[in-house]
Nucleic acid binder design. Structure first.
Length: 809
RNA sequence: GCGCGGAUGGCGGAACCGGUAGACGCGCGGGACUUAGGAUCCCGUGGGGCAACCCGUCCGAGUUCGACUCUCGGUCCGCGCACCA
């Protein structure tokens, strides 16, 4: 295992057994509570990683990658002297687990408990610097009691509403889905085509904070692409609401939203969304049967909009400015759920309306000059035409002018519309926390008194979803029937459970306070630890989870429960590991790689190091295990060379510079989350020490100690073992980070490139900081250069100190 | 279609502010040690050429003494959004 130069005595180094070190130090760390955070510490640093969803699929290499990267950062900050809080838990409620339980015919409670246990074991095996004393399990009544409490605070504040609305219904999961869980008209979980149902649901009023959340994005240190995804999702647009009086149907008016009120004179018909809930009232009585038949014939596929499909409702709408009568149509290209669910169609200046008008022979009128509306819709700006008193007004100004005219007659007003919608949290399923509401015949929905929390999820053997729009909990009569907390009248519990994004929307607030069973959020700890300083997780949660967490934090801040409105000061999305060119790792793609066997064979340290070495942490990459051995070899060299460093000589300036440079590079790379380059710097330092040993000069203890400390965030077990073997007291993970001086981190001698006309012709060495004139002199003295110049002086000389001399002839 | 990333040896990747392209690792070639080596160590490793040199960071222009880096145009790949009026 260990080679010796011929003729020397065997070194006093025993064989390295990395897996054994994992076990040894994980045990000792636990005994000594090494990662237990001092919650009253003076330099709190909350380093959060997205908690896992412990499915039966086990932890895969992609999870190991994500958690290790977050842990490296947390460990680094700890070594820098911060009181780092690195908690972890399990997001174990939810449809995904429940569906799996249904498939294998086991109760989700027992299944989840087993999965959590397995996950915890795998995570511990990775050697994360996690304070497990603050662990959260969202399915534990001790946690979901407070999830219910959060809901009640929102309910009391008017931020949770029970109302009927069109909702996304997954026919396979047999439940309502949030808009965010519908991707291209299909269920995000199972891929079934999502339909629409009208049900009474619990909505959290995320839209109330749409503008605030949009504005606050500017203050957050998040990557631009994440902020952009949030901006798009909030989808602010400015425009106007315009009322049209109706003739020939039950309703007298319909209101439309438009971002182009300047084109109002060009409106030639109205279109109502085919899924609009009050479509019948907008239809001429004689057309209703035809409408119903037409609606039944529509295909549920929403992926490709068809601008030719539509039906004339027989109703007439009165143009608020001209008094003209316009036909009213229904079409699926208009969304019944966005804005008012109705639009004024301006075919001259909207491509969709243009296509629709062409398909149905409806008139196209030009009201903004600049295009040719017979050939295509003109969506740009220009002077207004055929617009009554506004002819000649630039369209940009026309927007305001039209709104003023409408306001004068009370038929319209300026309006800001957001794409963001309220968050439906009702799930007609079993595996979630019951929504803590009792429906009283007299009082309506009444919150369960807080002292009666948690509302425990009853143990139900048959937890299959019913598909009737009601949760299986509705069948548990003895649980459902309760007296009203206000008047004692016989009442029924809410039987829906909440979306598991509610569980995960506030878990980071709870971590510091897990020790308290009498309050959700301890005031002192919450004020000390929130908001989160660094949050690391997958970019797939850029809109879903992050938006919900921001909403909940903002709401709870307004209610005085947390110190600031924004939950995450800094957020970074780690890259994803792909495998075999088959995209992101997932069980459905059959490309899951387990970290277990790698850890068992090579140890967690080698795996951690290799994962972090694959490429920039924020970019991810393709997984293969070809290079893993390279990192094991590196650790073996570290193991040997560190233990052979016995010299207390600290003079040697070159070695000291090398040491300072290594510190500077590792530090900088970690701060940028460029772990791969930090590891390169470690390799180079190790090679340097090896060279010292090989040259017979002896290795310096100080170099060995520094190497071990710099290695510690990446390979915590071997670093700890070597730290001990070097005779240090305490843990390397608690030892102060080595200091470095910038002036020492630079080289003393530099190599200057000599170019002639921009081409490299020679190099020479000189002291760092040698001035330009001197460099020029030295460059001209190079034999090869003199030869090329052949006595002629260069036309121009560019000398960049420490870098290059370029001679132009 | 719109927006945001990206493209560098056989492979993963490095390169601060425009200053010796290819750090570090894998793989590969050679050597040492060895009964053996798929262990370990040492040397080499972008392509071409005996050499001087030439070519080379997706392609094409440009700016510059000098461009992986900046500007313009294009190709390909990835991700997000995509009837939101």
């Amino acid at each position: 295992m260990v080679s010796n130069p011929p003729g020397t005595a065997p070194p006093p180094v025993d064989r390295l057994d990395l897996p054994a070190l994992d076990a040894k130090w994980q045990r000792i760390w636990e005994e000594r509570q090494l990662y237990r955070t001092d919650m009253g510490g003076r330099r709190p640093f909350y380093c959060l990683m997205m908690f896992p969803y412990p499915s039966a699929e086990r932890l895969h290499i992609g999870n190991a990658y994500a958690f290790t990267g977050a842990d490296v950062y947390g460990r680094y900050r700890r070594q820098r002297g911060d009181d780092v809080f690195e908690p972890l838990g399990f997001d174990a409620f939810g449809i995904h687990s429940e569906n799996y339980a249904l498939r294998v015919g086991e109760h989700p409670a027992t299944l989840t408990a087993r999965n959590v246990k397995h996950f915890r074991g795998q995570l511990r095996g990775l050697g994360l610097g996690v304070d497990w004393s603050h662990e959260i399990d969202t399915t534990d009544p001790a946690y979901y009691r407070w999830t219910q409490w959060v809901f009640l605070q929102l309910f009391k504040a008017g931020l949770a509403e029970h109302r009927e609305g069109p909702v996304n219904w997954c026919p396979s999961c047999l439940t309502v889905l949030a808009d965010e869980q519908v991707v291209g008209g299909a269920c995000e979980r199972c891929g079934s085509v999502v339909g629409t149902r009208h049900l009474k649901q619990w909505f959290l009023r995320t839209t109330r904070y749409a503008q605030e959340m949009l504005d606050a994005l500017g203050t957050l240190d998040w990557s631009e692409r994440t902020k952009l995804a949030q901006r798009n999702w909030i989808g602010r647009s400015e425009g106007a609401l315009i009322d049209f009086r109706l003739r020939g149907c039950d309703r007298d008016t319909v209101t439309v939203f438009t971002t182009r009120p300047d084109t109002l004179y060009g409106a030639t018909f109205l279109v109502i969304g085919a899924d609009h809930p009050q479509l019948a009232g907008l239809t001429a009585p004689g057309r209703r049967a035809a409408l119903e038949e037409w609606r039944r014939g529509l295909v549920g596929d929403l992926s490709e909009p068809d601008f030719s499909v539509g039906i004339d409702l027989g109703t007439r709408a009165v143009h608020p400015l001209t008094g003209a009568e316009l036909p009213v149509w229904a079409a699926p290209y208009v969304l019944g759920g966005y804005g008012t669910g109705a639009i004024m169609a301006v075919p001259g200046h909207d491509e969709r309306d243009w296509s629709f008008a062409r398909s149905h022979g409806l008139p196209v009128v030009e009201v903004i000059a600049g295009g040719d509306v017979d050939a295509a819709a003109w969506t740009g700006e220009g002077p207004m035409v055929s617009s009554g008193p506004l002819d000649g007004v630039p369209s940009e100004d026309g927007r305001r002018r039209v709104i003023s005219m409408l306001e004068a007659t009370g038929t319209g007003r300026a309006h800001v519309q957001y794409r963001l919608r309220d968050w439906i949290i009702s799930r007609q399923r079993y595996w979630g926390p019951p929504i803590p509401i009792i429906h009283c015949p007299s009082h309506g929905p009444v919150g369960v008194p807080e002292d009666q929390l948690p509302v425990r999820l009853p143990q139900v053997e048959d937890f299959r979803p019913l598909g009737t729009g009601v949760s299986p909990l509705a069948q548990v009569e003895e649980w459902v029937n309760v007296p009203c907390p206000l008047c004692g009248e016989p009442s029924r519990r809410e039987t829906d459970v909440s979306d598991n994004f509610l569980d995960s929307g506030w878990y980071f607030m709870r971590y510091p306070s897990t020790g308290f069973s009498d309050r959700a959020l301890d005031r002192e700890l919450t004020w000390r630890w929130l908001p989160v300083d660094m949050y690391i997780g997958g970019h797939e949660h850029a809109v879903l989870h992050l938006m919900y967490a921001r909403f909940l934090m903002r709401a709870l801040h307004q209610l005085g429960h947390v110190p600031e409105p924004e939950p995450f000061r800094r957020f970074r999305a780690h890259g994803l590991l792909s495998f075999g060119g088959r995209g992101k790792m997932s069980k459905s793609k059959g490309n899951v790689v387990s970290p277990d066997e790698y850890m068992a064979r090579h140890g967690a340290d080698a795996l951690r190091l290799y994962l972090m070495f694959l490429g920039p942490y924020l970019e991810g990459g393709e997984w293969n295990d070809h290079g893993l051995r390279g990192q094991s070899r590196f650790l073996e060299r570290v193991w040997r060379c560190v233990q052979l460093c016995a010299s207390d000589d600290v003079a040697g300036e070159a070695r000291e510079r090398r040491r300072h440079r290594a510190i500077a590079r590792v530090q900088r790379s970690i701060e940028e989350l460029h772990y791969n380059t930090a590891i390169s710097a470690l390799h180079e330092l190790q090679r340097g020490i090896d060279d010292d040993l090989g040259s017979g000069a002896g290795g310096r203890r100080i170099d060995a100690l520094t190497l071990v400390q710099l290695l510690a965030p990446f390979a915590p077990h071997i670093a700890e073992e070597l730290w001990e073997r070097l005779g240090q007291r305490g843990s390397v993970h608690r030892a102060p980070w080595p200091e470095h001086l910038p002036e020492l981190a630079a080289e003393a001698r530099v190599t200057i490139a000599v170019q002639v006309n921009g081409r490299l012709r020679a190099t020479f060495e000189c002291d760092a900081g040698t001035p330009g004139e001197e460099l020029e002199r030295l460059a001209l003295a190079q034999p090869r250069v003199a030869e090329l110049l052949d006595g002629a002086p260069p036309r121009k000389v560019v000398a960049v100190p420490d870098r290059v001399v370029n001679l132009v002839v």
